[in-house]
Design a protein around this nucleic acid. Structure first.
Lengths: 197, 197
DNA sequence: GTTAGCATGTAAGGAGTTACATGATTTT
DNA sequence: AAAATCATGTAACTCCTTACATGCTAAC
C-alpha cells in the first residue's frame, strides 16, 4: 500500500468535491487549514505532478473551443480525481494510524471528518488526545528532574505553553463527548461519501 | 553584520550562563522551549561546528589529567562563549526586528527576556501582537470572501484556531501591560547582562 | 552483566521556501 | 492604461530529521 503524505491527502480531499485549478487548490488549503499553512507553489505543483504520475488525479488542459481559436488562452489546468484517487482517499479516510494525530496531519484529517465514519472519527480524536496528554506528562517529568530553575520569563513561557495544550485537550474532550452521544443515536453520516456510488 | 539564525541565538543564550556539552545544550533547549522543539543531534552538532568556525564559541576537549591516564575518557567537549560570541549575543538582544516575532523565533527571544532591556522587550511583545492580529484580520477577510461555505467540522476547526490565537493575544496584552507599569517604576533589570563585565 | 542514560558525530534524504520567469484576465 | 489577481511552473537553497556508527558510565 503506497504511502500518502499529508499534502497529498489534503489535495485528494479538496478535489473530491470538485475539480479545481492548482491556484484554487492553494486558496482552499489556506482557507480550510487557517491563515497559516499557506503552501507555496513551489511545493504544490511538484506534488500535483507526482499525483498525476501516480494516477491519483488527471490534469485536464482547457482546450480552446472552436469558437475562439485566436485567443488561445494560456494553459489552465483542471485537476480531478481518478477512480484510483477516489479509492485511495476512501482507504485513507477509513484508517486511523499514528499519522492521523500528528501535529501536522491532525487538522487535515479533522477537516475531512464529514467524509469519515463515526468510529474512525472517535479513534482519531482519542489518539490525538493521548498524544497531547503524553506531552503534558513529559513536561511535568522534565520539570521535576530540572535542577536548575528557570527565570521568571522562561517559567511564564512554559506555563503558557502548558495552558494552551490543556485547552486543546479540553476541546478534544468536548468533541469526543459529542461524538459518543451522537453514535448512541442514529447519526453516522458521511460514511462512504468518498467511496463508489 | 553576519546573520544569526534562531538556533544559533538560542545556543548563545544558553552558553551565556555556563559552558556546557552538546548533549546538555540539547536538553536545555528542550526544557526551555517546551516538550516539542527537541532538536536532533544531526542539527545541533553541525551548528556548533559552524559557531566554532565563526569564532562565536570555543570547543574545549576535556583532557584527562595526569591522575588517570589509563582510562582516557572519550572526547567530552565543553562549549563556551568567546568574547566575540558574547558581543554577538548582546547585539542580538538589543535588536527587535521582524525576526524577533516570527513564529519560530519569538519563544527563543522571549526565553532570553531576562537579559533584554525593557524597551526592547516591549517592542518585541508589541511586534508579536501586531503579527497575530494581522493574521486574525486575514482570516476574517478570507471568511467574508469565501463563497463556498465550510461544513460543520471545518468550521469548528477554524473557530478553534481563531480562539487559540485570540487567547495568545490576550496573553500578550497582559505581558505588555505588566511591562509598561514596570517601566514607569524602577525595574529595568538585566540590561547588559550579556555585555562586558 | 545488562539496561538506561551520557556523549559525539556523519550521510542521506525529506519537505518545504524563496526567487525567478512568464503570461492572461479583471477591476479600477 | 495601470494595478490587482488569476495562473503555471522551475531551480537553488535551507533547515531539519532519520538512520547509522561508536563508545563510555552509572544504576539495578
Amino acid at each position: 500500500m503506497a504511502k500518502t503524505d499529508v499534502l497529498t491527502l489534503a489535495i485528494l480531499g479538496i478535489l473530491n468535491e470538485q475539480p479545481l485549478h492548482g491556484y484554487q487548490i492553494r486558496k482552499r488549503l489556506g482557507a480550510q487549514l487557517g491563515p497559516f499553512r499557506a503552501l507555496s507553489y513551489g511545493s504544490l505543483y511538484p506534488c500535483l505532478r507526482r499525483m498525476v504520475d501516480a494516477d491519483l488525479i488527471t490534469a485536464t488542459g482547457e482546450e480552446p473551443a472552436a469558437s475562439a481559436p485566436a485567443s488561445s488562452r494560456r494553459a489552465r489546468i483542471a485537476y480531478g480525481l481518478t477512480d484510483s484517487g477516489r479509492e485511495r482517499l476512501a482507504q485513507e479516510l477509513a484508517s486511523a494510524g499514528a499519522s492521523s494525530w500528528d501535529d501536522d496531519a491532525f487538522d487535515v484529517r479533522f477537516s475531512l471528518f464529514t467524509h469519515t465514519d463515526s468510529a474512525t472519527r472517535l479513534r482519531i480524536l482519542e489518539g490525538r488526545r493521548t498524544r497531547l496528554t503524553e506531552r503534558l506528562d513529559e513536561v511535568s517529568e522534565g520539570l521535576k528532574r530540572m535542577h536548575e530553575r528557570h527565570d521568571a520569563y522562561t517559567a511564564e513561557l512554559q506555563r503558557h505553553g502548558l495552558e494552551q495544550v490543556e485547552r486543546e485537550v479540553e476541546w478534544l474532550d468536548q468533541l469526543i463527548e459529542n461524538e459518543r452521544s451522537a453514535t448512541g443515536g442514529d447519526n453516522n453520516h458521511g460514511t462512504a461519501d468518498a467511496g463508489q456510488d
